[in-house]
């Protein structure tokens, strides 16, 4: 049996799942959501299985993994089932089930049917669409999604993909809340940056910021653009009073640096121990605060996003247009 679990015929999935639970000693099969991952990537299934294993540690769900290979030499359908069980008191006590599909040359209708036929009834559907949108992402699919996860930093052409999303969001049949994992990853930086100006002495420095520089690792330009877009849209700076920019960092770190006439305010990662350090140096005042840098693994980021719920406030309407402009420059 592979990491994907036990191979099954599509028509036998439900009965195979029932048999799986009957032979297992798991005390509880739990599910809060249907969590589907769709990718068009040849070797993503095992990596996504690891992600599901991580997510189910804190978020019980019915997981549906779909790997679609439109360029496969022939039409094919393969399926597997498995369970992710968490240990409690030395026993497997809580289990989530996973159904995996590998589809060669699938039609859009096959993919939709695969999703719809294997949902746990009454529970919300969370779909993580990995990569760029394809014609499969149409109204008959997205009208059933409750929450849509994307990761805009993986897109080659963000402007085009956000346009597809805008069309879907404007469709009266759609109801999904949108979560961008790129935006989720920035939460610790946003909290630490906001924390700089919680300091009573720093609050007045906000209007005097003359420069804002965000440095970023080589592959994190989109993240940096989003962070800069958020900071500039939240503040009252204009281009003549504050020079705001992003640039690639030689040390491969994301940092935020505000310059004011009285001093500087910075957010930097600490070395190796998973925290962000915010430092306020204004005149005689020096203050430091430590913030959790948040998880770096995808499973934890997704699990955290699933638990926090709620829509990303202002993200799509305000932050995205600004970020796209920054990315385009």
């Amino acid at each position: 049996m592979s990491a994907l679990g036990q191979p099954v015929e599509i028509a036998e999935i439900d009965s195979a799942l029932r048999a799986l639970w009957e032979e297992d000693n798991a005390a509880t099969r739990a599910s809060l959501t249907n969590f589907a991952i769709y990718s068009e990537c040849d070797d993503c299934l095992e990596a996504n299985t690891d992600v599901i294993a991580g997510i189910t540690r804190e978020h019980a769900c019915r997981a549906i993994l779909i790997a679609s290979r439109p360029d496969a030499p022939k039409r094919s359908v393969k399926a597997w089932i498995t369970a992710h069980c968490q240990l409690s008191g030395g026993q497997k006590s809580v289990c989530s089930e996973q159904v995996t599909f590998d589809l060669g040359q699938p039609s859009a209708s096959l993919i939709r049917n695969i999703v719809f036929a294997h949902l746990d009834s009454d529970l919300p559907l969370v779909l993580w669409w990995q990569g760029a949108f394809t014609p499969v992402f149409d109204d008959r699919l997205y009208s059933l999604i409750d929450r849509l996860l994307i990761d805009s930093s993986t897109w080659e052409n963000p402007a085009k993909e956000f346009e597809t999303l805008a069309t879907a969001r404007d469709d009266s049949t759609s109801r999904f809340l949108l979560y961008d994992l790129t935006w989720s990853r920035l939460l610790p930086y946003r909290l630490a940056t906001a924390g700089l100006f919680d300091h009573p002495a720093a609050a007045s420095a906000l209007s005097k910021v003359s420069a804002l520089t965000i440095t970023h690792p080589k592959n994190s330009r989109t993240e940096a653009a989003f962070l800069l877009a958020w900071l500039t849209t939240r503040s009252s700076w204009d281009a003549s009073s504050c020079k705001a920019s992003i640039k690639e960092d030689e040390k491969n770190e994301m940092t935020v640096h505000f310059t004011t006439p009285e001093g500087a305010l910075t957010v930097t990662p600490t070395r190796d121990d998973g925290f962000l350090k915010s430092t306020v140096t204004l005149g005689r005042l020096t203050a430091e605060q430590i913030y959790p840098a948040g998880p770096s693994d995808t499973a934890s980021i997704v699990a955290r996003q699933l638990q926090s719920g709620g829509a990303h406030a202002d993200y799509f309407e305000t932050i995205v247009p600004h970020a796209l402009k920054i990315i385009a420059t």
Partner: peptide
């Protein structure tokens, strides 16, 4: 109000003390 807190708050922000 710290403008960067506006969309981050999931609860009433505690004051430094």
């Amino acid at each position: 109000m710290n403008p960067f807190r506006e969309d981050l708050a999931t609860r009433t922000a505690p004051d430094p003390c």
